[in-house]
Design a protein around this nucleic acid. Structure first.
Lengths: 338, 338
DNA sequence: AAGTGAGCTGACAAAGCTGTCTGCTTGTAA
DNA sequence: TTACAAGCAGACAGCTTTGTCAGCTCACTT
């Protein structure tokens, strides 16, 4: 029933240790032997026993997913991505929700890494942006991959996955411009979030590139919440020169704006186009459905995890990959009326 | 640095085996000895090595969380609850998203249990309601705890956690009645979900108990979605004798109803009270915030997991515990105007 | 022909715990 | 006093893999 490394060794006619070498991608095994072993593995459908590996090895075959993020949809997507990479590579996943603002967060994480002898960590914002945490992890030689908003040039050492929010913001703003909009407003999220900064930057860049006026009244500071969207939109609607389109920093804000605008008697998208960011299920739970920017979170997480696992052998101290979110056109954006 | 069972044994002045007995709650250890060992464990901050346990024992110290549910907030809550129970008891968590409608779901699960030698499974709807799955798991003697909607009398054998949705529905409906409402409508979710049936039942029961008319026009069949709420509310609003309050089967539906009602120019809660169910973050992302029914999902999951772990030794074949959701009064409900 | 070193492989111990067994000590009932 | 059981020590195998190190092979040098 259960296939052990012993069975594989016998089948392939080699020693147990050699099979172990092959499964761990160790060098110094003849290619012919590798092939033989791999054949045996496939033939017997052998899967290494995690517990035994963990016990015997110096590091466990587990990667940790650390998160502190109120957005459940984001977490689930990330988790799924990590999980599928783990399954592929025969790792297990240790999830660890935490409070990034806690004083003891660094101790908590180093504790976790040591105790579970984690092979690596997947860090999402805001943890991936916290120098304190990063330093603490480096100090104990923990492997980690950071997922952050940016477009390159930001890679410190270590593995980094960049999500080019700026690009996404440029594209979605361009989409509105292409529809004929000239007065486009921006509802920001928390300004200390890296993602907010990047998105705002993209918005501005798109306007500038198209030689459109950058109206400071059109940039409303806010938070990542529905209410913030309501308030922001109300402010904009009262303006004498009301914008014809709004770029919201995420879908929640957009939903709030949509709500407020419709209450104010505006037709969406006839009188006002509103676009979001994230492509969360939220964007499909509004009426009309939101045009937004899609972030392939599961894929991002999967690639990040694969990178982390690959690093276990190859020691490229530095590596970065960039993902570019793309607009998803739905029903909340259209050409301005007049 | 690392504390092993050996250290504990020395500290407590007993044999390794006795420490093992204590950590596994085996009988035939004097209470005095148990205390001594527990003291030593605490003093040294000993945590058994999972890998070694898994390797040595006949069953692993891992419990599986199986889910197929699009509601990310629900999943995250459950996951956190399970996680905290696991941490407490020194178990690890294996998460396994799946497709409940898949033909091979039974094979998939039995495979998982066997391969990971899971100590137990936590099953949520719809998997916890699927006789096929339940039978397959029983056939391989897998432990599981089911979380289902109901109020008792539904416990087949095995561990069951009941969430008394009916009670919650009665209470929230009563809340509206207490406010003076007499024309109360119901927007249902998917009728083949157990939870929908229970909530509808509770709604009806509350009306009957208060000798209020049960108007069939006020019960709108729908789905668990925002759009369904929009449509349902629109139907109700057009009625000649428009209801003064709506009980929605979950927060999404309520949000949709809210949206539609405000678009129709109704004041909420002045002209129309709307209440939801679930107390998901959704309910705080509307305007006004939804009165709803709170389900303590994390706690439910935690208790379920503790039960599952306890069962490992004590063999009570049958056990059920019921949770009763309670109303959370926020801003979307008030007395009718007239 | 012997010596050298790189490339490859296997024997063995080790990781930390559980399960099983034998056998000793107690306390308690007959 | 005898018998017997509960409570525990101690020894040992076993779980499955990895890390260490010694040793083999073979091409290549001198």
């Amino acid at each position: 029933m259960k296939v052990t490394i012993n069975d594989v060794a016998k089948y392939a006619g080699v020693s147990i240790k050699t099979v172990s070498r092959v499964t761990n991608n160790e060098p110094s095994v003849k290619q012919a032997t590798v092939d033989k072993v791999n054949e045996a593995i496939k033939a017997l459908n052998y899967q290494p026993n995690l517990a035994a590996r963990n016990l015997a090895g110096t590091k466990s075959y587990a990667i940790g997913f650390i998160y502190d993020n109120p957005n459940a949809y984001y977490i689930i997507d990330m988790q799924n991505g990590i999980l599928s990479a783990c399954k592929d590579k025969g790792y297990e996943l240790v999830i660890h929700p935490c409070n990034a603002k806690s004083d003891s967060i660094c101790d908590e994480l180093t504790q976790l890494v040591k105790h579970s002898r984690l092979a690596g960590l997947v860090l999402t914002p805001p943890l991936s942006e916290d120098p304190k945490v990063l330093k603490a992890l480096s100090d104990i030689d923990a492997n980690y991959v950071r997922i952050i908003a940016g477009e390159g040039g930001k890679e410190q050492d270590g593995l980094t996955i960049l999500v080019n929010d700026k690009f996404g913001a440029v594209e979605i703003t361009q989409h509105l411009i292409d529809l004929g909009h000239k007065e486009i407003a921006f509802l920001s999220g928390d300004l200390h979030h890296e993602s907010t900064k990047e998105r705002l930057l993209g918005y501005k860049q798109a306007l500038t590139k198209n030689r459109l006026l950058l109206n400071e009244d059109y940039i409303i500071e806010g938070k990542y919440s529905f209410e913030s969207g309501v308030e922001g939109a109300n402010t904009l609607i009262k303006l004498t020169n009301r914008p014809t389109a709004i770029v919201a920093c995420n879908d929640e804000i957009a939903a709030g704006a949509l709500f407020a605008a419709r209450l104010a008697g505006l037709d969406i998208p006839g009188d006002l186009s509103i676009v979001g960011f994230e492509d969360s299920p939220f964007s499909r739970q509004t009426w009309p459905k939101l045009t937004t920017v899609h972030q392939p979170n599961a894929e991002i997480a999967q690639v990040a995890t694969e990178l982390l696992i690959a690093k276990r052998r190859e020691q490229d101290a530095k590596f970065a990959k960039t993902f570019t979110p793309e607009p998803v056109i739905r029903d909340s954006s259209a050409s301005p009326k007049n």
